[in-house]
């Protein structure tokens, strides 16, 4: 199981989740994707959308004042 990183702090909806999905599509099942994103809309939507599409959200943590990290395990 490999771990990958993605920074979508410069993206806006819906490209935040689009970029996450594109990155997840390159991974194998069980791989981990650590996504850095802004609080607010991206933090509200990206983990929810990932979970809706069957991936597992393992952890959400604050890394800077406005930046959070969401750890997603690919289904």
């Amino acid at each position: 199981m490999a771990t990958y990183q993605l920074d979508i702090t410069k993206e806006h909806c819906p490209m935040t989740f689009v970029k996450t999905k594109v990155e997840l599509s390159k991974l194998s099942g069980g791989d981990i994707l650590e996504v850095n994103l802004l609080k607010g809309e991206p933090l509200d939507n990206v983990p929810r959308s990932a979970a809706e599409q069957g991936h597992e959200v393992l952890k959400i943590s604050q890394v800077e004042e406005d930046v959070y990290q969401v750890i997603i395990k690919k289904k």
Binding site: V18, K19, K21, V22, S25, S49, E52, G54
Partner: peptide, 20 residues
Amino acid sequence: MNEQQIERYSRHIILSNVGV
């Protein structure tokens, strides 16, 4: 897909039944 295609087809990519 290149970056422009990812943007152009973003509404398809979001769909769980279509995706990348």
